[in-house]
């Protein structure tokens, strides 16, 4: 009998959970297939399934799912509702699973995180394991092991940021959601350009979570989006320690449209507001990044 293959699409959930899923599923003895890093073909695929007004990150995610759909037995796609009342998520996180189920012919593995209703991540993982025909004890061990590995990875990420902070070099905070930060068409591209000019780039997702959630209260007590709170926490934590901030938004992100605007109005710091969509023209963006960095270099 051939092993069951499970597809992990890049996109919305990949940066935060992809590694955890991979460790967990491999420990359970299953094949894992990740989709390839975003390229033009993925974007084209995504656009063919998406409606025109969807946010660019969601379009990319649909592209990754479409890429996987005929190559694997299951595609793993969770639904994340909230981590408590103060940590809710974007509505795209709520509906991606149902949306994908309707437009793709593949079968999906899914779990739901809704901590208000006591549906936790651990329960979700047990559910997946059961669906794949594994014993609960086996799943528990695999989950714990995967979680350990994931923590180790996170620690490394945070350490890298800390090291950069201590160095003398000029620093830029790249502020965006985790799913944008490491995408070759979004965050990576911007980061490359900034690094080329001799600045170091701090990623907004690599800080201690608890600390960030606490820090975000300094900007806004009522903010209730998990992703945005982490971002704003990073901003408040770093605003005096860095030279400039690049806000990276995929058009038309609902959370960023409100929260980033609030941050720009309330706090004062040098910033560049980049809004990305699926056009291929990068020259205009290059000019803006360059002139922003020029200004920062002049400020000594």
């Amino acid at each position: 009998m051939t092993k069951t293959t499970i597809g992990i699409p890049r996109g919305l959930f990949y940066e935060e959970y992809g590694y955890l899923w991979k460790c967990y599923l491999e420990k359970l003895g299953l094949n894992v297939k990740e989709s390839i890093p975003t390229n033009k073909e993925i974007i084209r695929l995504g656009n063919s399934y998406a409606t025109s007004e969807m946010c660019f990150s969601l379009k990319i995610t649909l592209g990754h799912i479409a890429y996987l759909q005929n190559q694997v037995d299951y595609i793993l796609l969770p639904r994340i509702d909230n981590f408590g009342i103060d940590n809710q998520t974007c509505t795209n996180f709520l509906l991606l699973y149902d949306l994908a189920k309707n437009i793709f012919s593949a079968s999906f593995l899914s779990y739901n995180i809704n901590e208000l209703k006591k549906e936790t991540e651990e329960k979700g993982f047990m559910k997946i394991g059961k669906q794949l025909g594994k014993k609960e004890e086996e799943c528990k061990i695999a989950y714990q092991e995967a979680k350990e590995k994931e923590k180790e990875r996170k620690r490394k990420k945070i350490k890298r940021n800390k090291n950069l902070l201590e160095k003398e070099k000029k620093k830029i905070l790249l502020l965006s959601h985790p799913y944008n930060l490491y995408d070759p068409f979004l965050g990576e591209m911007v980061a490359k350009k900034v690094k080329k000019r001799g600045f170091s780039v701090l990623y907004s997702d690599a800080f201690e979570e608890e600390e960030m959630l606490k820090q975000s209260q300094n900007l806004s007590k009522n903010l209730y989006w998990y992703e945005s709170r982490k971002n704003m926490g990073a901003l408040m934590f770093l605003k005096n320690k860095i030279d400039g901030i690049i806000f990276l938004t995929t058009f038309p992100c609902g959370l960023d449209s409100l929260v980033n605007e609030l941050a720009m109005r309330k706090e004062s710091f040098p910033y560049l507001n980049l809004i990305m969509d699926d056009s291929d023209a990068f020259a205009g963006m290059d000019t803006r990044i360059e002139s922003f960095l020029d200004i920062l270099e002049l400020q000594r």
Binding site: Y49, T51, E53, M54, C55, L58, C90, T91, N92, L94, L95, L96, D98, L99, N102, I103, P252, G254, S257
Partner: peptide
């Protein structure tokens, strides 16, 4: 325009 939940539900 840009109403996220409705945009997402349109394909369904």
């Amino acid at each position: 325009s840009f109403c996220t939940p409705e945009i997402g539900v349109m394909p369904i």
